[in-house]
């Protein structure tokens, strides 16, 4: 990926965010769009962790849960502004990722997948069972972010759907920009190097466990912010956000679109967010379809949809 791929991805994404509403048949699609952006953000984190650093997490929804419940609980219990609660959630997620990842990532192999699976389930259990704090499986109200009211007094009057659409779109653009910066930076190159050959990476002076840990922490922050945005726009959240299925959903979105490419991951997020909205019958079989998508992509499009198509068009890889 060179500068032009970075620019192309960012411009394409910006154009999509800006122009898509022109084709919306109803206000409902602002909501679907915002959901796509929220999922796209989480999946961008998966690209950094899995696509570049070659590590697999099956518990990233746990971080989304932390981000979501930070926005639900911190304003009520500690009087922290919901906007600041996003940062609080991100900090807690980063700390937890650090504590879990530090011992695990010293080991070779896919131990992170197992450890993160356990971690995600634990977070989900805490959210379900600590009823005094989280109100358990019934879910909990999340306070208003309040930014829309501020914009209104400044003369920009958006509907709730429009506000969250553009707000999440901007955050996703920011997240994509950061990820693409990383890709071409020394840190990003070192990540891709250790993915290519750990032995060689170590002999060129790369501290492999430390770098994997950094990727895990960064991707945890992405998932956490995505959870916060989901909670704030729904104004309500249940422990499902931290559930195992949500973790699998993130990985499947990334794998479908192309786990090595930010544009691909966002495409994957869009497809798997849209499908259940368009085909409501799909909702019943969501797990079945996720599994099927995963299997088919692994067999026919190992790199994911977007990189495979790009390769066809250019006749080369990215």
């Amino acid at each position: 990926m060179n500068l032009s791929t970075k620019t192309a991805t960012l411009l394409g994404l910006a154009a999509l965010v800006a122009l898509a509403p022109l084709f919306f048949p109803s206000g409902f699609y602002y909501r679907v769009g915002a959901l796509i952006f929220v999922n796209g953000l989480a999946v961008t984190g998966i690209v950094i962790l899995t696509g570049w650093a070659g590590q697999i997490s099956l518990g990233h929804a746990g971080f989304a849960g932390i981000g979501a419940y930070a926005c639900a609980l911190a304003p009520v219990h500690w009087g922290i502004h919901p906007g600041l609660a996003i940062f609080l959630g991100a900090a807690v997620s980063a700390l937890l990722a650090f504590l879990v990842g530090r011992p695990i990532l010293r080991l070779k192999g896919y131990y992170l997948a197992v450890a993160s699976l356990g971690m995600g389930i634990l977070i989900s259990m805490v959210l379900n069972n600590e009823r005094d704090l989280t109100r358990g499986p019934d879910g909990i109200d999340v306070p208003e972010l309040g930014l829309r009211a501020v914009l209104k007094t400044a003369g920009l009057d958006l509907t709730n759907g429009q506000f969250w659409y553009f707000f999440c779109g901007l955050i996703l653009l920011l997240g994509a920009w950061i990820a693409l910066n990383l890709h071409d930076s020394p840190t990003g190159r070192a990540l891709r190097a250790l993915h290519g050959s750990e032995v060689a990476a170590r002999t060129v002076g790369i501290d492999v466990p430390r770098l994997k840990l950094q990727a895990f922490v960064i991707s945890a922050v992405y998932a956490s912010v995505s959870g916060s945005l989901l909670a704030l726009q729904n104004k309500f959240i249940t422990p499902d956000v931290a559930g195992f299925m949500h973790s699998v959903e993130m990985v499947t979105m990334a794998v479908l679109g192309g786990v090595g490419s930010v544009a691909g991951a966002i495409f994957g997020a869009a497809v798997l967010t849209l499908l259940p909205q368009v085909l409501t019958v799909f909702a019943e079989y969501e797990q079945l379809v996720l599994g099927l998508v995963m299997v088919l992509v692994m067999i026919f499009l190992r790199e994911g949809v977007v990189p495979s198509i790009l390769r066809k068009i250019r006749g080369t890889g990215e």
Partner: peptide, 13 residues
């Protein structure tokens, strides 16, 4: 990489 192992934050931004 080792001569330029600067901060991750600078790279991200």
């Amino acid at each position: 990489h080792l001569q330029e192992s600067g901060s991750v934050l600078a790279d991200l931004l």
